[in-house]
């Protein structure tokens, strides 16, 4: 039940599926996400949320069907340039500081950023005091903040985020929600996979997955989300 949307689609999934031998991680899925939309992707553990995000980012390969980002196949160079993926588990270099991480990742995307740009970013995510430290020695929450900063340090049209609030303290969560709103205001599309039923109140569209299949696509209240995917 894909929702009709007048704006051009940024992400298009057509019969996109992923199976591991007998296990269906994602049943054939048809989905469109337009520029400037903020979408909540909800579902219980193993429902296929992370699988879908990883398929779209190119980290996983489709068993069948197709996913395109800005018209380019998922995982292709153009699609990678358009999509920023923030995974649920921070993956960071042991030997680079936060600043060096930001400089490296932004350079890999052709961004000529200054130290001031990085300072502003680390300030926004609450890492200003730790910008020259090695994230390898950080707590889970600080590593998550570093990962968030990296996802934002590069250009993108679509931001896909997997469980961003895990490990974040209350100020960190508020800062991230503020960033999402700002990006949304700038016309970026954002897809957030989360178990946080309250988050659906901030978005106009909620896609609920259950056992790899879409069971709801449209506006939803937290109560509806709990009913759809179970508590």
């Amino acid at each position: 039940m894909p929702s009709p949307d007048p704006t051009p689609a940024l992400l298009v999934a057509e019969q996109a599926s992923k199976t591991y031998a007998d296990l269906v991680a994602l049943a054939p899925l048809d989905l469109q996400i337009s520029a400037g939309t903020m979408v909540a992707l909800v579902g219980h553990n193993g429902s296929g949320k992370s699988t879908f995000l990883r398929l779209a980012s190119g980290l996983l390969e489709l068993t069948d069907g197709e996913i395109t980002i800005n018209g380019a196949p998922a995982g292709s160079s153009d699609a990678r340039a358009a999509l920023s993926f923030l995974p649920d588990e921070p993956v960071l270099y042991d030997d680079l500081s936060v600043q060096e991480h930001l400089a490296y990742v932004s350079a890999l995307h052709g961004v000529h950023a200054t130290r001031d740009d990085f300072n502003e970013l680390v300030e926004r995510v609450g890492l200003a005091a730790r910008a020259d430290d090695l994230p390898a020695r950080f707590s889970r929450g600080l590593r998550q903040k570093t990962s968030i900063a990296l996802a934002l340090a590069r250009p993108f049209d679509l931001l896909m985020v997997d469980e961003p609030f895990v490990g974040l303290d209350a100020p960190g969560k508020d800062a991230l929600l503020g960033i999402f709103d700002e990006l949304h205001g700038h016309g970026r599309a954002i897809v957030v996979a989360t178990h946080d039923a309250g988050f659906v109140e901030r978005v106009g569209r909620c896609i609920a997955l259950r056992d790899g299949e879409v069971v709801h696509d449209g506006p939803a209240t937290p109560a509806e989300v709990l009913r759809l995917v179970g508590s």
């Binding site: 030997d95 350079a107 890999l108 995307h109 052709g110 000529h112 950023a113 590069r154 700002e182 700038h186």
Partner: peptide, 27 residues
């Protein structure tokens, strides 16, 4: 807040430079 890519950037050259930097740090 919003990063902008330079379409003429030499990404592969950048990668080479950064790998050299990391190697020097490790060494």
């Amino acid at each position: 807040m919003l990063a902008v890519a330079n379409p003429d950037a030499d990404l592969e050259g950048t990668l080479r430079d950064w790998r050299r930097f990391r190697r020097q740090k490790r060494t």
